[in-house]
């Protein structure tokens, strides 16, 4: 397969922060009825530069979430290597923030307590306690500090979840379809919020999504994955200027390019884009 992970060490380019080298992850308790084992990922290579916004896109079963969980340290590969700033990933770290598809806030804690969770867990709450109000405001949750998660809307919960991860000032933010469960208006809202935060923190973001528009609108690079076995089939540069417009010629062109890659790769595009 083509080697999308080649790193050109030009002085202008920011350093590579995340390296995935020849990673394979097999699940034996397969959900596929016909197979005994499923290669969720097979020989996957990927490099992400500091400050980059990368999207992983592909149909379900292509291993995009598996790859994200491996980078997070929530799961371990059978073979291959995962490096963050040159150090092997041995487990989870607050330096790799993770946002789940469901907001996954702790229902027994208020919005404020949820957002402060990371600070308390790391024992730095006293030092950074002033941050909590700031992150609440940033997430647009002022006035809801004392609400419980079930009392706020899905979009608000997902913003709280983002703030909860960001308050740890992670080096990388790993987003597992955080907008998948939201309606399209809330989703666009959150996309803007995400861009704003990404620029403000100059964060490195890896976003798992099955929404081509979302990937084209947000990312610097779009990693296209195909299932059975999960592989990276193509990486598309989406380096057109920001702020972007969803109706610009470049946007439509990139969108078509991504769609085309799905067909070339022989895989089905996500259902909503199948022609």
């Amino acid at each position: 397969m083509s080697s999308p992970s080649i790193v050109i060490n030009s002085p202008a380019a920011p350093p590579v922060i995340i390296e995935v080298k020849n990673v394979t992850r097999v699940f034996w308790d397969a959900r596929e009825k016909s197979e005994k084992s499923v290669s969720a990922l097979e020989n996957v290579d990927l490099s992400v530069r500091k400050g980059e916004f990368v999207s992983l896109i592909g149909p379900s079963g292509c291993g995009k979430t598996t790859l994200l969980r491996l980078i997070a340290g929530l799961d371990a590969p059978q073979s291959g290597e995962l490096l963050v700033e040159g150090e092997p990933v041995t487990g989870t770290s607050h330096e790799r923030g993770y946002v789940f598809q469901q907001a996954n806030l702790f229902p027994w804690e208020t919005v404020e307590e949820n957002i402060a969770f990371g600070l308390k867990a790391r024992g730095v709450y006293e030092e950074y306690r002033g941050d909590v109000a700031e992150y609440i405001a940033m997430a647009g949750l002022k006035g809801f500090e004392r609400s419980y998660p079930h009392q706020i809307s899905g979009g608000m919960a997902q913003r709280a979840s983002l703030a909860r991860a960001l308050i740890n000032r992670p080096k990388a933010l790993l987003l597992d379809e955080p907008m998948g469960a939201l309606d399209s208006f809330t989703r666009m809202d959150l996309q803007e919020k995400l861009l704003e935060l990404w620029q403000k923190f100059s964060a490195t973001i890896i976003l798992v999504t099955h929404d081509i528009d979302e990937a084209v609108y947000l990312s610097d690079r779009i990693v296209i994955m195909t299932p059975r076995p999960g592989r990276i089939s193509e990486i598309i540069d989406a380096d057109y200027p920001r702020p972007r417009s969803r109706s610009s010629a470049r946007f439509v062109e990139l969108r078509n390019k991504v769609l085309e890659k799905f067909h070339l790769a022989g895989a089905e595009a996500p259902v909503e884009y199948a022609i």
């Binding site: 997070a72 340290g73 929530l74 487990g91 989870t92 770290s93 607050h94 790799r96 923030g97 993770y98 789940f100 469901q102 996954n104 702790f106 969770f117 990371g118 867990a121 790391r122 909860r164 991860a165 740890n168």
Partner: peptide
Amino acid sequence: SYFEAARTLGAD
């Protein structure tokens, strides 16, 4: 997922 969220937030 609660345990996973806590771990990624730095909880021991």
